[in-house]
Structures are given as C-alpha cells and as structure tokens.
Simulated assay, not measured.
Amino acid sequence: MLKVENLHTYHGFLHVLQGIDFELTEGELLAIVGSNGAGKSTLLGTLAGVYAPKDGSITYKDEEITKYSVQKVVSKGICLVPERRQIFSSLSVKDNLLLGAYHRYHKDKKSIHKDYDDVVEMFPRLKQMLDRPGGLLSGGEQQMLAIGRGLMAKPKVLMLDEPSLGLAPLIVKDIMNILKRLCREMGTTIILVEQNVKAALKVADRGCVLAHGKIAISGTSQELLKNPKVQEAYFGKSSNKSDVPITM
C-alpha cells in the first residue's frame, strides 16, 4: 500500500534522513520509535509533503507521490496528526472537527455529516463538549480532538506524531486502544511515531527503531520488545550478552 525507498531528507545542510526503507500493508499499525533527534518527525513530515526529500521515493497504491504538495497528499488519503495537537484553540470542538474535512466539502458534502457523527461516537468525551472552545480542553481531550480532526479527512493512512506527549498513563492507554480499534475495525493504516516505546509496541503490528536518520532495527512488535538492544536502550534493562546500545 505504501512503499518508502532510499529516502533522504535535509534541513539546510543537516542530513536528517539517510536512506529510509519500509513498506506498509493495508490495515497495519507500524510504530516508529527512537530518541529525540533521530529523525522521526522529519520522516512523517516528508511523507506528508511538508518536507521535500533530496533523494528516494514514496509510492502510495502504485502511484509515486514523492513531490506532491501537502494538499495533494491529503486528498490521496494520507493525513498527519502533528505533534502537540495544534488545534484551533478559539474554535469550538465541533468546528475543529469539521475543519478536518475542508478539502472534501464541495465534492463529498453529503457524507461529511455522517463521518462527523461517527467520529463523535468514537470519542464520547468530546460529544459532551461540542460547543466548548478547543483551548479549554484538557491535554488528553485535545489529543482526541486532533485525532478526530484527522479522521474527518477520511484517511486511508493516518500518521501520528507523539500522541502520548505530556499525557497521563491512563489517557495514553485510552488513545492507544483507539488507534488499535481504528486498524482492526475500520481498516485504517497507521504510522505511529512515539518516544513511549513500550506503549507503541504493545499496540503495533511491526516496529522500526530510528537512530541518527537510519532504521537501526525492524521487526514485529514482539521481536522488538524482546530485543536486548531495545530493552537496554529504552527500558533500562541490562543484558548479559555483549549487545551495545542502539547506534548507527
């Protein structure tokens, strides 16, 4: 469904992504984990059309979208829920949600209201505060609103950048369960970028560890959870083996 080959992205002279390769199948949840500065947000931004890669290709359903604008990427069915929510704080919850469907308004107007009802049912807490300004919501509620707004774009591929950032463990668990449900019940393909490695891998089908702009380790989520290098680097578990921390 989505294929990334030899992707290289720069910020000025800084070579951030250094040859990224991976593939996604429909309905799969891929976790991309790693420390600060590994290139995770740049990877999502490149896939979303925010950053133009210097080399490599992004193919979606056999169509190369490497040089597409953000608007065209969204129209193809790929949506990014950015880090730190970035909701419109002065607008109501309802208006924030409806803005997620702005690009569909003229050609898909009839189905927008049904999609809105479906999203509201998925987030019962938001249903109770549809007229409340987004800026008055708690961090967890704002994250649910950001995900709901993303879903209003009717994406086939939903990308999330650090959705657990700054949230309490119980809220993180709720959000991870919602993502898992989106894959299992709605067939949404999800790319989840996270520093909360354990939470991400518990709900993911597969995972990649990003280090210094390259994929250092990849495999099923269970393989990564049991990997001594991952355990040592992210869970604080020492290994009796001669494994070293994840580097490139």
Rank of each mutant, 00 (worst) to 15 (best):
M1Q: 02
L2F: 00
N6W: 03
Y10Q: 07
H11L: 15
G12P: 06
H15T: 06
G19W: 07
I20F: 10
D21L: 09
F22E: 06
G27E: 12
L29K: 05
L30A: 08
V33S: 02
A38E: 08
A48K: 00
V50W: 04
Y51I: 05
Y51Q: 05
A52T: 13
K54F: 08
S57I: 11
E63S: 10
E64K: 10
K67I: 07
V70K: 12
V74G: 00
V74P: 00
S75M: 12
E83K: 02
R84D: 11
L91Q: 06
V93K: 01
V93T: 07
D95S: 03
D95F: 00
N96K: 05
L97P: 00
L97F: 07
G100N: 04
H103S: 08
H106I: 01
I112S: 02
K114P: 02
Y116D: 04
V119G: 01
V119N: 03
F123D: 04
R132D: 14
G135V: 14
G139P: 06
L145Y: 14
L145Q: 08
A146P: 11
K156Q: 15
M159H: 08
M159L: 12
D161P: 00
S164D: 00
L165A: 09
A168V: 01
P169G: 03
D174G: 01
I175F: 02
I175E: 01
M176K: 03
N177H: 11
N177C: 03
E185K: 12
M186W: 14
L192G: 01
V193W: 07
E194L: 00
Q195S: 07
K198N: 11
K202T: 15
K202V: 13
A204V: 07
R206F: 13
C208P: 10
C208H: 13
C208V: 13
L210A: 13
H212S: 15
K214R: 15
A216N: 13
A216L: 13
I217Y: 08
S218F: 12
S218V: 11
S218Q: 15
S218H: 14
S221H: 05
K226W: 02
K229Q: 15
V230P: 04
Q231W: 06
A233P: 02
Y234D: 01
N240S: 14
M248K: 13
